[in-house]
């Protein structure tokens, strides 16, 4: 299959997936106990007030009608307004996306060279000292959950040593206004993806270096350095690309734990707030954004894998 045809087919499937996700999320949100009116009423659940709120928020209409309206608006590019604040959902998404995208981009920028580089180094001498040290570190680090690592780093570097700001409080989402606040969240976000990607690169390289075509190239006298970079690496990177896609996806969804500990007002926080408030249009908007991101990132990864090792891509 040609690359453009493959891409077109996958894009079409992706669009269907986004609508599917939106539908499932709508059904699930509706299935949650209580609605925005109940949440707004809080501990003053006067039934008449709840009824009035429900009427005001247009929650009286059947769920399927509200869903179809929302879908029609979506088709024309309108994500609607928040049930609670009446501000446009698009604004909420943009505000939440800025810090999330920044963190994701910075993480990836460090992650790829770091993990691929160290993975390749470890693969040079399988079982060597460097390999064993890297493996031990990677497995150990991978075992630490994000929130534990985050709290630990804050306690040590933020509070005790006071080398770095413990939270991003006060930046208002503009993390670049004080780049130091990025340091600790970046370390946490890097930790586990670094482990899995460096391990994958290492394994891929070792396997590729044993492959027939590399052995053939070696017999032809291709220098070792060229052998690794040109002949082995592309094959080793196909699984890495797909793992990287999963990581990117995870980062772009807003890593809630990291956002909560460091007070980064990103997409994860926005989603938690919206679900708590039963703000259905905002929940829907966020889920569509996340679904589109997921589909796009995975499509890109598959296309890269397709390019790197066509047989793998075609089989997928």
């Amino acid at each position: 299959m040609s690359l453009p045809r493959y891409a077109a087919r996958r894009a079409l499937v992706g669009a269907g997936q986004v609508v599917g996700v939106a539908t499932v999320v709508f059904v699930l949100t509706e299935a949650l106990p209580g609605d925005a009116a109940v949440v707004i009423a809080g501990d003053q659940p006067d039934p008449a007030r709840i009824a009035l709120l429900r009427d005001q928020l247009d929650l009286d209409r059947p769920a399927w009608q509200r869903y179809l309206d929302w879908l029609a608006d979506l088709a024309s590019g309108d994500l609607g307004v928040s049930l609670v604040s009446q501000r446009p959902v698009a604004g909420v998404l943009a505000a939440g996306a800025a810090p999330t995208v920044l963190l994701a981009a910075a993480t990836l920028l460090l992650l790829v060279p770091l993990s691929v580089g160290l993975g390749m180094l470890a693969a040079r001498r399988e079982g060597g000292r460097l390999d064993r040290a890297l493996s031990a570190t990677a497995v150990g680090l991978y075992a630490v959950p994000e929130f534990a690592l985050a709290l630990l780093l804050v306690a040590v570097f933020g509070i005790r040593l006071a080398w770095l700001p413990p939270t991003a409080v006060g930046t208002g989402g503009d993390l670049l206004s004080r780049p130091a606040v990025l340091a600790l969240p970046l370390v946490v976000l890097l930790a586990r993806p670094f482990c899995s990607l460096s391990r994958l690169t290492r394994a891929g390289m070792i396997e590729a270096m044993r492959a027939e075509h590399v052995a053939h190239a070696r017999r032809l006298g291709v220098p070792e350095r060229r052998l690794r970079l040109v002949h082995a690496l592309p094959n080793a990177l196909a699984p890495v690309a797909q793992q990287l896609a999963r990581t990117t996806d995870w980062l772009l969804g807003g890593v809630i734990v990291v956002e909560a500990v460091f007070v980064v007002p990103g997409l994860g926080t926005a989603l938690v707030d919206a679900v708590t408030a039963r703000d259905v249009p905002t929940v829907q908007g966020l889920c569509v954004l996340v679904a589109v991101t997921t589909v796009t990132v995975n499509l890109a990864a598959d296309l890269v894998a397709f390019r790197l090792a066509p047989r793998v891509g075609a089989a997928a």
Partner: peptide, 10 residues
Amino acid sequence: ARINALLGGQ
């Protein structure tokens, strides 16, 4: 996070 922000001078 609130107490950390206070301790960190934020």
